[in-house]
Design a protein around this nucleic acid. Structure first.
Length: 538
DNA sequence: ACTGGGGGCGCC
DNA sequence: AAAGGGCGCCCCCAGT
């Protein structure tokens, strides 16, 4: 059973029962209290809810205490379909989709601020139920096979993202403040540097014999040149090779300054409320299908701050990540028998290491395997990695060929797709002419690296979505997903349920693999730790 | 005063 | 032979 939903007014809305292919299976039903109506039908028939945007509509339901099991998110699905057709960037809104269906010019887009404002309580910007139904029917007709699975996974991701934002990641401001004070000194007045940061800045100035603002790369480059140490940039890895006494001070300054500006006290004030960090996730915000986040830098929490992520009393965090997800995905994707055999084991790189040998005083065979693997997936590889890649190519020809052909296709300006059909952006119109020039060849190489990585990263993102979608209904009472970062999840759970959570994680991981790849020897092990604090995992 | 590009670096 | 994927966020600084 499917139900289309259209909010209308402050609290109310309209529902309409649909068949799977979008034909109306009943009359439109105006309801005065949309959340209550959804809750009632969720209890009685657990339908798949068809609505414009989970990100806009579901938070309101969650605030009313209503959770749903499944949905079809029209905007997320429209974006997938547009990308599939090489039309990434065109509006994914329901009115725009409707205009395309009718062969009309795109309607004028509302300003972001305007729609945010009006949709707070499900306001006037939401299209009427007929439009929701019409766009769903058109999408359903196009969503065949794997694309249908992709749309379902993406929609599940939307639900999970909203639920995680609603729940929030447990965050102890007192612990965070102590960490900052220990590294930077006590909280300074606004606009001032913390004491330890100021001391470093003063010592840097002293070393150069004149005022240098270490926040300014330009000033630093000049200062180093003036001291007889010309540097092309002030990147940390560049400075590490420079034998000037200011270098260690600058490196320490950069590290602490970043902590202060990106995750310091003002971050804490802004993003942590009531002991919870509530980031806004942007499902499908990355072209590869990875999530992005808006505000708060949720996907870049520095490791040092994980100390502040502490479970509530009587609760635990189950921190789990998929070990070496991307190479395993490549193994399954490419159907490389030899590679799949290696990926049938717990430590993939150790298994691959058999192909390489240790260099005394240099990288281990396992390190070499890792370098070769990452080079194959990212398109890198200078110096020694070239030989490592050659070994990889000989031993695992199918896997090598898979990423190689994706790179060639990208260079030719073609689009590439993930396993389920997520599609990379097309090359620009000027691309084909450009690639005869020097700059164009660089652009082609760059696009090749992008598409090479896309097929793996995007399929890995699909595995992660499937994993979470399968995990969610398996979580025991009281356990909640509270964080997701590409291949890692955190579940906040009553202590007594931690073991059940761990079992659910392992089950969901292998089910996700079967859902995507069917029978495959490749295993997708989860490394799960039950801990009181995020920093204690790993 | 505001904007946008670039440098730099956090995470995967 | 060489070739380093994806983000978000902060600051600086030049242009307007």
């Amino acid at each position: 059973m499917f139900y289309a939903v259209a909010p209308d007014g402050e609290k109310g809305g309209v529902l309409r029962a649909l068949s799977r292919d979008g034909r109306p299976a009943g009359e439109p039903e105006p309801v005065p209290d949309l959340a209550a109506a959804v809750a009632a039908r969720e209890r009685s028939s657990a339908p798949r809810w068809v609505w414009t945007s989970t990100a806009r509509l579901y938070p309101r339901l969650l605030r009313a205490g209503v959770r749903v099991g499944r949905c079809h998110d029209l905007e997320l699905a429209e974006a997938l379909l547009l990308a599939f057709d090489g039309r990434m960037g065109e509006s994914r809104s329901v009115p725009a989709a409707l205009a395309r269906l009718r062969g009309l010019p795109p309607p004028e887009e509302r300003h972001e601020a305007e729609s945010e404002q009006q949709s707070l309580f499900g306001g006037a910007v939401e299209p009427p139920i007929e439009e929701v139904v019409a766009v769903y029917a058109a999408q359903a007709a196009r969503l065949e096979g794997r694309l249908r699975l992709l749309a379902a996974a993406e929609s599940a991701g939307g639900l999970i993202a909203a639920e995680m934002s609603h729940e929030g990641l447990p965050w102890r401001p007192d612990v965070h403040d102590e960490l900052l004070a220990g590294l930077l000194g006590p909280r300074p007045s606004p606009g001032l540097r913390p004491r330890l940061l100021q001391e470093l800045a003063d010592r840097i100035t002293a070393e150069f014999g004149g005022p240098v603002n270490p926040d300014s790369p330009q000033q630093l480059v000049k200062a180093f040149a003036g001291a007889g140490f010309p540097v092309p940039s002030t990147r940390a890895y560049v400075l590490k090779g420079v034998a000037h006494p200011a270098v260690p001070l600058v490196l320490e300054y950069k590290e602490l300054a970043r902590l202060h500006t990106a995750h310091g006290w003002s971050w804490l004030d802004t993003w942590v409320k009531g002991g919870r960090f509530r980031p806004e996730y942007v499902v499908g915000g990355v072209v590869s299908g990875r999530w992005a986040s808006r505000g708060g830098g949720a996907l870049q929490i520095p490791k040092v701050l994980r100390r502040a992520v502490v479970a509530d009393p009587g609760h635990a965090l189950v921190v789990a990540d998929a070990a070496q997800l991307e190479p395993r995905v490549l193994a399954a994707l490419a159907g490389d028998a030899a590679f799949a055999e290696a990926a049938a084991q717990g430590d993939l790189y150790s298994a691959l290491a058999a192909v390489f040998s240790d260099t005394p005083g240099g990288p281990s065979a396992r390190d070499k395997a890792k370098i070769a693997m990452l080079s194959a997936m990212y398109g890198g590889g200078t110096g020694e990695a070239v030989q490592l890649l050659t070994v990889l190519k000989q031993r695992f020809p199918a896997a090598f060929e898979y990423v190689e052909s994706a790179a060639r296709a990208g260079e030719r300006g073609e689009m590439v797709r993930s396993l389920l059909g997520r599609t990379c952006p097309p090359a620009s119109a000027e691309y084909r002419d450009l690639i005869t020039t020097e700059a164009g060849r660089a652009a082609a190489a760059s696009r090749g690296r992008f598409t090479r990585n896309f097929v793996v990263q995007a399929t890995a993102a699909e595995w992660a979505l499937a994993f979470m979608a399968l995990l969610r209904p398996r979580l025991p009472e009281g356990a909640r997903l509270v964080f997701f970062q590409h291949d890692e999840v955190i579940v906040h759970t009553p202590e007594r349920e931690a073991e059940a959570v761990t079992r659910a994680l392992h089950t969901a991981a292998s089910e996700a693999a079967r859902l995507l790849f069917g029978p495959t020897p490749v295993v997708f092990p989860m490394e799960a730790a039950t801990v009181p604090c995020y920093a204690d995992a790993k």
